[in-house]
């Protein structure tokens, strides 16, 4: 087991954001977390990568507890996180952004060059833009840069937070193709997605989050066919002729 969360609770002030999350990610898998806005998906990822302090519960990465390990140490251990909203350094060029991804690695120039080549192989677009400031890229290019940068750390586990956010439908498919490809090349992936249909089609297993709790977990294929999941996350909650919502008040 590469990653194991057991009854993890996280608070923002007095508010409990995660109310006992337990999940596992095995080596080689794509696992996805789906759920509505504010269900705690991003918080889960931030907690795993050490950005949010845990109130209680345990997190094990490669069998070792990482609950008190700061984010910058986790990168060295092989856990890489492409954050929601991409987190591109706007004032740095594409190359500099990518090199930041390898910040924690000890391998010298040759390693960085090799990783750069690999990322450019996946995203030829980034090679074209390599000396452009990150802030001037389009949304899709920024997303590629965010994923490429996370790969520069040479991760065993890659956390992706909403990679399809704000992208045109065509780009969405493209990004998901690349995610599948990265996984095929041997990187385990934990994926958080608003676009549940795509995510479930690409993932091996999935967890459904609701208000800080895991309410369902199954193979992705099973959830994709599940009626209640379909109703809740694959087509909007309220059907246009929902009887309970119709009619005037009173």
């Amino acid at each position: 087991m590469l990653l194991e969360l057991s009854d993890v609770r996280v608070h923002y002030g007095k508010v409990e954001a995660l109310r006992g999350i337990s999940l596992t990610v095995d080596e080689g898998e794509i696992v996805t977390l789906i759920g509505g806005n504010g269900a705690g998906k991003s918080t889960t990822l931030k907690t795993i990568s050490g950005l949010r302090p845990v109130t209680s519960g345990t997190i094990h990465f490669e069998g070792r507890s990482v609950v008190d390990t700061p984010a910058h140490k986790l990168v060295e251990r092989g856990l890489s996180h492409a954050p929601e909203g991409r987190g591109i350094f706007p004032g740095m060029t594409v190359v500099e952004n990518l090199e930041m991804g390898a910040y924690a690695r000890k391998g010298g120039r040759s390693m960085v060059t090799a990783e750069l080549d690999r990322v450019y192989g996946l995203f030829p677009r980034l090679l074209e833009r390599r000396s452009q400031p990150g802030g001037t890229l389009s949304g899709g290019e920024q997303q590629m840069l965010a994923i490429g940068r996370a790969l520069m750390a040479g991760p065993k586990l890659l956390l992706l937070d909403e990679p399809s956010m704000g992208l045109a439908p065509m780009l969405v498919a493209q990004i998901f193709d690349i995610i599948t490809e990265i996984n095929r090349q041997g990187t385990t992936i934990l994926l958080v997605e608003q676009n549940a249909a795509q995510a479930l089609r690409r993932a091996h297993r999935a967890y459904v989050l609701e208000t800080g709790r895991i309410v369902r977990s199954d193979t992705a294929a099973a959830l994709l066919d599940d009626e209640s999941v379909k109703a809740a996350y694959l087509g909007g909650d309220i059907s246009p002729d929902d009887p309970e919502a119709s009619g005037t008040p009173g």
């Binding site: 923002y12 002030g13 007095k14 508010v15 409990e16 954001a17 109310r19 806005n37 504010g38 269900a39 705690g40 991003s42 918080t43 208000t211 800080g212």
Partner: peptide, 18 residues
Amino acid sequence: PEHSLAAAPEAAVVAAAT
């Protein structure tokens, strides 16, 4: 920043759960 309503929608969102 997590506590302010404006900065962290997630925090506010999960308040519903509390």
